[in-house]
Design a protein around this nucleic acid. Structure first.
Lengths: 341, 341
DNA sequence: CTGAAAGCGCTTACAG
DNA sequence: CTGAAAGCGCTTACAG
């Protein structure tokens, strides 16, 4: 089965054309000087037999795999059921494909947590989809012998190129927008789990409030939760209190959608009684009732940008680390009321 | 960078332990007879240095890649944004991972349409996610030199192991259920595009109707459409006609959900005016208003079953082709009314 | 302008 | 019980 059994090889082409196998290799790789006729004849024969040099032989000699690993956590279904990551994968697949690199899914791990494909030499680099990575996941990548590009992760956790969305800028945009619409007493709801992109959004939101002249103490503004159920209770509690907020910023659209449903169940009108903003511009935001005002970004390009970073790194291993920050923008729909003001 | 540069190799372990590299290889692969002490010492040293044999060297010698390619169409995002396929991928990844095989995404194609990874010798087999394959996609796989396992595709289009869901059985179940609930005048809505699993569902539905004593001419029952918009019109038309059906079976949940929305827009009540059944038990079925009665199957196992089939095929290349049919079941929710009867 | 040879890292008959 | 040697398919300095 498999690999070479009966498959065409360099030697076969050489015999057919009547030259040495070195010349065939040179023709294919566009090096060496030979007569135009010879080169054409060799290439024609290769095309005719659909010959492609065997990857194992090539890899062994060249000390490179022509493949990139993709690492993710926690589970494949969780990851790829998410259209955001599906889009990233598509971008990776396209850009690497054009460069002649294949994508390997690196789910197996060595005893020290490094993906097996790395020490097996199956990949030249790793793209790490780190959106929900815990600290120890980064730890195991620390001594990775191939370059790593981190997507949507905790910048600084690793010496690696990185691509993130501008959570800070997005948080700021939300604050500025809410204040402009007359909201001064606001809350942000975020998970306790200190993920990089969540912290960025919080920091940006607080910064935006302050820049808009609203005094914002983190402890007063940010409601830290462990799960959605807690979010529902805490927000409802705050609405019953003397200091009821007029707007709530949920750290992502899924949470915002949950809150909308929960609030409406308890007879609260959105945005009549309280305005709601999400983050991500997830497809769910559009389907929400009312349609959710949120923060969007061009997710399509995440994959191609990370792939580009990897390609550059492979070409120039010593170049300085790059951190690409993808801009975010307000996506205004129907979940925020204008308080006049 | 990459592969072996500075990486540990067999020779390094041999030098450290003080034996030949053949002995190290034997120890790792559990063959050859050697003293227990020697084997233990070698294995300990490998573990200490996290040594894994280089894949290119191994592949070249063994003529096998220890990897399986995954082929899909049309686009990655379309495929993996679908939780069904994400689940399949998860099952593949798990089962192959346990067997020491990695998964390669085979998006690049040779001039004759065969995935490049095949002739490059990067994979020992191909899993083909064929849910929306057109005929020419099968064509290019016809002369594939490695074994193929087709998932959710047109059985018979390829000499290959296959895994499908029991669309025929599911279609029958729907027919029997509808008749039991008193529906005799029914329609099925399906795309013109003659995909295997769609044809199966139609055939099963017609067979189920007949088995339940309902005379069913295909031309009367089946509404063939090119797109959703056409489906909406044709179904509404039929409801206005003298022979208005009491129930409509949509070939999948997405179409059913579209029809529900469309019917309700035109003032039709579901299931009051017309009952509706979908197929797939897509997450959307649960969210539908009313919740959609549909046909479900255990999709989780699709991946592990296909992976298992590949593993068996690799172990026994000449064994007869296997076609695994995954059973389907009725998932009864709120979109079908009981007509008494 | 073209070819013979070395060597990438590995496994496996085979010799001792 | 252990090791030396051949060879998987490829590319590249080097010799002619």
């Amino acid at each position: 089965m498999a690999v070479g059994r009966g498959g065409t090889k360099l030697k076969d082409i050489a015999d057919l054309v009547g030259c040495s196998l070195a010349t065939v290799s040179n023709a294919i790789n566009g090096r060496g000087r030979m007569s135009e006729d010879m080169r054409r004849e060799i290439l024609a024969k290769c095309a005719e037999l659909n010959f492609v040099p065997n990857s194992a032989g090539r890899s062994l000699r060249l000390q490179r795999a022509d493949a990139v690993g993709v690492i993710y956590a926690p589970s494949f279904a969780e990851l790829f059921g998410n259209i955001f990551y599906a889009r990233i994968m598509e971008g990776l697949s396209e850009t690497f494909g054009e460069a002649g690199l294949d994508l390997i899914l690196g789910n197996r791990k060595d005893s020290d947590g490094l993906p097996s494909i790395v020490r097996q030499g199956k990949v030249d680099a790793l793209v790490v989809l780190a959106g929900v990575f815990e600290a120890d996941a980064y730890e195991s990548l620390r001594n990775c012998p191939v370059p790593v590009c981190m997507v949507d992760g905790h910048v600084g956790a690793l010496e690696a190129d990185a691509v993130t969305s501008d959570g800070f800028g997005g948080g700021r945009l939300v604050a500025e927008y809410l204040v402009r619409e007359g909201h001064q007493n606001v809350r942000m709801v975020a998970y306790k789990n200190p993920l990089y992109n969540i912290e960025q959004r919080i920091a940006g939101f607080l910064s935006g409030l302050r820049a808009s002249g609203v005094e914002a103490r983190e402890d007063d503004v940010v409601i830290r939760i462990s799960d959605n159920a807690e979010a529902g209770e805490r927000v409802l509690d705050s609405l019953e209190s003397g200091e009821a907020p007029t707007a709530v910023f949920a750290v992502n659209d899924t949470l915002a959608e949950y809150l909308a449903t929960e609030l409406q169940k308890r007879g609260k009108n959105v945005p009549g009684d309280v305005s709601l903003v999400g983050f991500d511009d997830d497809p769910i935001a559009r389907r929400c009732e009312p349609a959710l005002t949120t923060v969007g970004m061009d997710k399509r390009v995440f994959g191609s940008i990370s792939a580009g970073l990897v390609l550059e790194r492979l070409a120039k291993p010593e170049k300085p680390l790059v951190h690409h920050v993808q801009p975010t923008r307000m996506v205004i729909r129907d979940s925020v009321s204008n308080l006049g003001g």
